[in-house]
């Protein structure tokens, strides 16, 4: 009889624990999904920023800014300057 009660109690505890673990797993899964979404968003933002940086730093853009905005000239002839 005692053994039976212990067994039933064990089954009940195991059931409750299984349910608790299952709930916890769902919570963790939700957090994982949220984190993955955040990661995807950050990755997308990183790519946009990388693209923006590369576009601004492209030599075509640099030369355009240097010649048009700063009135600079690309040296046409290389000359040696000696002090």
């Amino acid at each position: 009889m005692v053994l039976g009660i212990v067994a039933w109690a064990g089954i009940a505890v195991a059931g409750i624990e299984t349910a608790r673990q299952s709930g916890e797993m769902r919570d963790l899964f939700q957090r994982l999904s949220t984190n993955q979404e955040v990661q995807d968003g950050l990755l997308a933002e990183y790519r946009l920023l990388l693209l923006e940086q590369a576009t601004l730093a492209s030599y075509l853009n640099l030369e355009s800014v240097a010649t048009d905005d700063l009135d600079m000239q690309f040296p046409e002839r290389i000359r040696r300057v000696e002090r």
Binding site: L51, A54, A57, S58, L60
Partner: peptide, 8 residues
């Protein structure tokens, strides 16, 4: 797809 260096 984007190409920062463009024509270059």
């Amino acid at each position: 797809r984007f190409y920062p260096a463009g024509e270059t």
